[in-house]
Amino acid sequence: QCRIIKDHFSVYKLPTTPLFITRDFSPDCSSVVHSQKAMTDQPQTDLGLYKPPQTVRGMTELDRAAFSQTVSVPAIRIPTIILNKVVKSLKKVALQRPGLKRVVEEHNEDGNKDSSKGEHRLLLLDPNSITSADSFGSEEAEALKAYGVAQEIQKYQLKLTYENLKSEEILRAVLPEGQDVTSGFSRVGHIAHMNLRDHQLPYRKLIGQVIIDKNPGVTCVVNKTNTIDSTYRNFQMEVLAGESNMVAKVRENGVLYEFDFSLVYWNPRLSTEHERIVSLLQRGDTVVDVFAGVGPFVIPAARRGCEVVANDLNLEYFCWLQHNAKLNKVDRKIT
């Protein structure tokens, strides 16, 4: 009896209840991953706040200091005694920037700190939301009135540095105008895996460094340089930035895997599909996976109480499968 579970995943139930998992692959992996949309696409940023210096356009070697710039942002003056309450009420329109304090001290016209005993602070506001005193929504306006805060806007001169910018802003400033900007990638442990387009390749080293700078825990960025080999399911890659250590540690659905990402195929987008298929199994089932890879199906199945027979043509897969079975203490349940 054959029951189709998904387009390219089939489950075959035999009278003796073994369960076979088969997967149809194409050389470009289109049958498994139908979309190349990055898993970590950045949200739309407030590009109106940052006007990059023209000197960074076309940069191929990252110069962080070149991105520094002073911009004018709206701010509202709040008594210190009620600061926390008002800030909470205005959180939807407050300025949100990486590494940036949104509450600052007042300054005099000469640029020095105000010496008025710190009775007031300035809350920096998002210039995309607040352009004048009339820009506040009814909810914010009512809160300001209730706390007795004047609905008046000041201009604050804010210094933005590379640390305060988002990856999309940096790359949009560097790449030629009108060309696609990518700040998305697939993450495999400490490795960020990118699929750059041809027009982005001259900037690949800079892109890799920006990804490391803006994503804690990422210490290596690679770019795929050819299509996936249809026999052994791996591909050539170039290290764009960071360390060259390709042995990744990945935890998926409560299972720990280790493997050399340069020698095996691993797609983090298949995590949900792995979990869904394994959830169909019951304790005592016999599972045969003839394309076992590093074990994303058979190790969870063994942990579920199934008897497992696993194989793979690629010796690298097979070695890491054995390693991961021992790592998860199910090596006696897998043949």
Score class of each variant (00 low, 15 high):
I207N: 08
I207M: 15
I207G: 08
G208R: 05
G208K: 06
G208W: 05
G208L: 09
G208Q: 03
Q209P: 04
Q209E: 14
Q209A: 13
I211D: 09
I212M: 14
I212D: 03
I212P: 07
I212N: 11
D213Q: 05
D213F: 04
D213A: 12
K214F: 02
N215H: 04
N215W: 03
N215F: 01
N215C: 07
P216Q: 05
G217Y: 10
G217S: 09
V218I: 15
V218W: 12
V218T: 15
V218Y: 11
T219H: 09
T219Y: 03
C220V: 01
C220M: 09
V221G: 06
V221A: 15
V222A: 05
V222W: 07
V222S: 03
V222D: 01
N223M: 06
N223T: 12
N223K: 11
K224V: 09
K224T: 13
K224H: 08
K224Y: 08
T225K: 13
N226V: 09
T227K: 13
T227D: 13
I228A: 02
I228M: 15
I228C: 10
D229I: 02
D229F: 06
D229R: 10
D229A: 11
T231P: 00
T231E: 13
Y232Q: 06
Y232L: 10
R233Q: 11
R233K: 15
N234D: 08
F235E: 05
F235I: 01
Q236A: 14
Q236N: 15
E238A: 05
E238D: 14
E238R: 10
E238V: 08
E238L: 03
V239M: 00
V239Y: 02
V239I: 13
A241W: 11
A241P: 02
A241H: 04
G242V: 08
G242H: 03
E243P: 06
E243W: 02
E243M: 09
S244I: 07
S244E: 15
S244Y: 08
S244M: 12
S244P: 11
S244V: 12
N245W: 07
N245F: 06
N245L: 10
M246S: 15
M246N: 10
V247C: 03
V247K: 14
V247W: 01
V247P: 01
V247F: 00
A248E: 04
A248V: 14
A248Y: 01
K249L: 08
K249H: 14
K249Y: 05
K249A: 09
V250G: 01
V250E: 10
R251L: 06
R251D: 12
R251P: 00
R251W: 00
